[in-house]
């Protein structure tokens, strides 16, 4: 994978700047990019990402840079590859048997596909919340929150207790469940379950939180709770959220990416995308003319 990418990189760069060696190119590029993203550092960089399911291509050379501690919304019609894209970020894409990926994704300038990067470690740093709440049915609320820790060998009861409270508070669920921590996680309401899943993701020391339509199964009140939560979490985490709800994207995000048919059509400040999109397709989608 990384070999292929390197070769491709080389070819592309060779075409653009034939005289500069590859390693130098990277350095120059970073230095060059730094001021253009304005004070924020790049947390995740997607470099020419193409994803396939068998022979079907789902992503076509997507390039984007996601700044640290910002909320990035990904919008686009159903089937355009939003889920596929964010599932590449934490290497969940490769768990699909026929799936393939080319290109590269850098987390803090390091490729997540490097041979030294274990997908398990990547997933601990880049957490994910799914569309449907998925609490583990056999586990209690308490166990659900810290399952990512206990299954990776953390046994210290005091650490775990603290972690449970901290995560549940972060996920704005503590007050609702603090007296019922031993109840099964599946006994909560859908909205509570979703916040439980967010707490579960936060309990693992993550840096980036991916959310795939986290509110699509929730009622308006739970939705606004999750949105408030996203505002809170932004202080400490980089958040990437897929949503079908344009208002939600506008409310919670600083950057918005619009995708269509596996391609990244527009990626800019949310305000710009929603008020003055540079691409006609984006405008059509946002104004509801298609999709």
């Amino acid at each position: 994978m990384s070999d292929e990418t390197a070769v491709k990189d080389k070819k592309v760069r060779a075409a653009v700047e034939p005289t500069i060696a590859k390693s130098e190119t990277r350095k120059i590029e970073v230095r060059h990019e730094e001021p253009s993203t304005e004070k924020k550092t790049t947390k995740v960089k997607v470099d020419d990402a193409c994803a396939f399911f068998g022979t079907k291509q789902a992503l076509f050379s997507v390039n984007m840079e996601i700044a640290e501690k910002e909320v990035t919304a990904i919008i686009g019609p159903s089937g355009c590859g939003k889920s596929t894209l964010i599932r590449c970020f934490n290497r969940m894409h490769e768990t699909v048997p026929t799936a393939k990926f080319t290109g590269d994704i850098l987390l803090d300038q390091k490729s997540i596909f490097a041979p030294t990067m274990d997908p398990v470690v990547v997933r601990r740093r880049i957490g994910m919340v799914f569309q449907k709440p998925t609490p583990f049915p056999t586990l209690s609320i308490y166990e659900n929150v810290i399952v990512g820790l206990t299954l990776n060998g953390v046994r210290d009861k005091k650490v775990l207790d603290e972690k449970v409270e901290w995560s549940l508070r972060k996920a704005a669920l503590w007050d609702e469940v603090k007296d019922n921590l031993q109840k099964p996680g599946a006994a909560l309401s859908g909205g509570q379950q979703q916040r439980l899943c967010i707490a579960r993701a936060l309990a693992v020391e993550l840096e980036v939180l991916l959310m795939d339509e986290p509110c699509s199964a929730l009622d308006p009140i739970s939705t606004s709770k999750v949105e408030e939560l996203i505002h809170e979490l932004r202080q400490n985490y980089t958040i990437i959220i897929v949503t079908h709800n344009m208002q939600q994207a506008a409310r919670v995000s600083q950057k918005t990416a619009f995708m269509l048919n596996g391609k990244l059509v527009e990626y800019d400040a949310t305000e710009k995308v929603f008020t003055n999109p540079s691409n006609k397709l984006t405008e059509d989608y946002i104004t509801g003319r298609f999709g």
Partner: peptide, 17 residues
């Protein structure tokens, strides 16, 4: 359900665990 497995993988839990 497959979603349960995915949820576990996404937490950085290895496949055999």
């Amino acid at each position: 359900p497959h979603s349960i497995r995915e949820a576990s993988w996404a937490l950085g839990v290895s496949q055999w665990k």
